[in-house]
Design a protein around this nucleic acid. Structure first.
Lengths: 112, 112
DNA sequence: CCGTATCCGCAACGATACTG
DNA sequence: CAGTATCGTTGCGGATACGG
């Protein structure tokens, strides 16, 4: 629970801050959503979905997501190279939680 | 649901992106947590809980949270001034969702 | 006490060129 | 195709000083 953390004034060590650190950044969640929708996606394919992301940023984000065990990278040793990205089980479990944020946002959007 | 958004390649308009925009930034969620824990908090009090936040950043964040209707600002016209911040009902409903991110983070933290 | 005004550093992101 | 290397840009947040 959240309350415990405030007393310790130790927010950086909360599960919450940890979860957010995994998905922070401009593109990470869009990447995760693409992987959830299409299950298995290649590098350039992903790049097209994200429209404006640069090679460098996509590459960095994928590495971080992989290091955090949210996605799985599968490399096929062939020419030209082929690499596929997919959600891990851990990644899928996170998506179920994130989806609730999505629902909240839909139901609580301010009509301006 | 999330899936609908990907096809439209319209992530910016998702409820999810919207929710995140409300709580993005380094301190916003810590602020929300403090308000959840203490219910009613004053400016300098909040500043002490957050340890390192600057006046400017705290002020900006509070204004944005208020504009997004997540918190309520109450001003007492007296000298010296007294201002109290508290979660709105909308803010409280968001916290119940955020708490699940917290739980996920606790249960899924990688042991390195 | 509760902020605003100003300046500035830094990390994230983008653009482009290039490689196995 | 799937990246790496390099350089440039930008926006968030910090530090400090000041005001009602």
């Amino acid at each position: 629970m959240i309350q415990n953390y405030i007393e310790n004034a130790n927010f950086e060590d909360t599960g919450f801050a940890y979860t957010l650190s995994l998905i922070s950044g401009k593109h990470k969640m869009v990447i995760l959503y693409c992987l959830m929708e299409f299950e298995t996606v290649r590098f350039n394919e992903l790049k097209r979905y994200l429209k404006t992301i640069s090679d460098k940023t996509l590459s960095t984000n994928l590495k971080e997501l992989e290091a955090d065990k949210l996605i799985v990278r599968t490399e096929y040793p062939q020419i030209p190279p082929k690499v596929e990205y997919a959600l891990s089980e851990r990644g899928k479990s996170l998506m179920t939680v994130l989806d609730q944020l999505c629902v909240w946002g839909e139901e609580n959007r301010l009509t301006e």
